[in-house]
Design a protein around this nucleic acid. Structure first.
Length: 434
RNA sequence: GUGGAUGUAGCUCAGCCGGUAGAGCACUGGACUGUGGCUCCAGGUGUCGCGGGUUCGAACCCCGUCAUCCACCCCA
């Protein structure tokens, strides 16, 4: 069909039939976050372009080619947020949250925007839920972050996901590591893929997670690059190493299963020390469900005092995509009541429905169609009970209550409708059960 | 941003070397304005993604464009 308007590329409509899954996932997340004692924060969906350029790194792909950047009518240089951390840290500084207590535990949920080529699990507008602990360098905060991270996935019903964990040290150790890596790769440089040769110039650490098979063979030493591949963990400064050991010990004490991944590098420049992420194989190429880590230099880079932070974000679109393949019970639909009128009583339907709506989920037919059509509509709408306003019964001050599943039907005095419905439907149902 | 595949009814899909719209399901109304799921009848089921070109003639061939999917890049 030749439609004049389509949703912009990479965006989509979430229709009523799938909204239930989203609300369920969001409610689950909210519950876990609140029990962990995190406070929700909502920041603007667009910010000054420079905020993201500064925090993500001028040379990062996100800033270079994936930003929805625009000027407003006054010429301000703005961008739709590509991630959540920058805005939260900006708010922390601008609203001086530090004055209300040193450590803040915050969470957010909302749409993010990146201009990439869409594919399965990658959209230009997508939703993230994330959490941050700002104000403490303690390894215990890293431990809680990873724990909260896995508990969210558990609340959604994931089983057997493994968190990949690494330390990316400090900017100085990263530089040292990049130097060693470059050195190590120098002899085989010509044999690296074209992409990786470019990475070696721009961001050597990126070579580590190349998907090219030849690259992988070289990295794993099978192609004879000689000597063991240098590891990030081997070049950590003493403080970062101690921090790393504490994180590992803390996670072990809580029985949180992690796998050390020496190739784990984060895409954004502001990460320091702990880095973690989780993937799901059912998703194809875009398999990252979420990731996070420590960002001790970020707030200072925004012009604030040196303030440590640690956080993560999770892609909700991908979570729901991965959950499609699994047996997830959708939230139970609220039991519904359908009020059906006859020729003589149609005028009474709206008022009765409105009264019952104080307590029940109630619907009726706007068009006063035949009784059989109304019952058909009641069926399709998922109603469990029909309230039939028969002319004769109505005249006696009664209505008929019909159980649509069993077809059992009986006359009930008008004053007892609510009580009878309560009995039939089970105690007062919540509109959004679960 | 790069490479490849695919766009026909609301959905899932047919349509031989170019010859003038198809099936199932769903949907709407009626048979049936005092009783729903069944059945029957009647029906929208459509500029064959959009634009241009070749041709007497294009759903089919060519070019462009938009969208989706897959992979790369990157990431959630």
């Amino acid at each position: 069909m030749p439609l004049k308007y389509q949703a912009p590329r990479g965006t989509r409509d979430l229709l009523p039939e799938e909204i239930g899954r989203w609300q369920w996932a969001e409610a689950r997340a909210r519950g876990v976050l609140e029990r962990y004692s995190y406070a929700e924060i909502r920041t603007p969906e667009f910010e000054e372009f420079d905020l993201f350029a500064r925090t993500s790194g001028e040379t990062s792909d996100v800033v270079q080619k994936e930003m929805y950047r625009f000027r407003d009518l006054k010429g301000r240089d703005l961008a739709l947020r590509p991630e959540g951390t920058a805005g939260v840290c900006r708010a922390y500084l601008e609203r001086n949250l530090a004055a209300r207590g040193r450590v803040h535990k915050l969470w957010y949920l909302g749409p993010m925007f990146r201009y990439g080529r869409p594919q399965k699990g990658r959209f230009r507008q997508f939703f993230q839920v994330g959490a941050e602990i700002i104000g403490t360098p303690a390894a215990a905060a890293d431990v809680e972050m990873v724990t909260l991270f896995v508990d969210l996935f558990r609340a959604w019903g994931f089983a057997g996901l493994t968190v990949a964990l690494n330390s990316v040290g400090t900017p100085a150790t990263r530089e040292e590591y990049a130097r060693r890596l470059r050195e190590w790769l120098a002899p085989v440089r010509e044999r690296l893929s074209a992409d990786s040769q470019k990475r070696l110039e721009v961001n050597p650490l990126r070579v580590l997670d190349s998907k090219d098979e030849g690259d992988r063979a070289l990295l794993e030493g099978r192609a004879g690059a000689g000597g063991a591949l240098p590891r990030m963990l081997d070049v950590l400064d003493p403080e970062s190493r101690a921090h790393w050991e504490q994180v590992l010990a803390g996670l072990a004490a809580l029985d949180v299963r992690c796998e050390i991944d020496h190739g784990l590098v984060r895409g954004l420049d502001y990460y320091t020390r702990t880095a973690f992420e989780v993937h799901d194989r059912s998703l194809g190429a875009q398999s990252a469900l979420g990731g996070g880590g420590r960002y001790d230099g970020l707030i200072e880079a925004l012009g604030g005092p040196p303030t440590p932070g640690v956080g993560f974000s999770i892609g909700l679109d991908r979570v729901l995509l991965a959950l499609e393949d699994r047996a997830v019970t959708p939230p139970a639909a609220a039991p519904r009541v359908f009020v059906a009128g006859m020729e003589e009583t149609h005028a009474e339907v709206a008022a009765l429905a409105r009264a019952l709506r104080a307590e029940f989920v109630v619907d009726y037919d706007f068009e006063a169609r035949s009784l059989s059509t109304q019952l058909k509509a009641a069926d399709r709408g998922g109603a469990r009970v029909a309230v039939l306003l028969g002319a004769e019964e109505w005249g006696r001050g009664e209505v008929l209550l019909r159980d649509l599943a069993t077809k059992a039907q009986r006359a009930v005095p008008r004053g007892e409708i609510a009580a009878q419905l309560r009995a039939m439907l089970g105690s007062a149902p919540e509109v959004s059960a679960r």
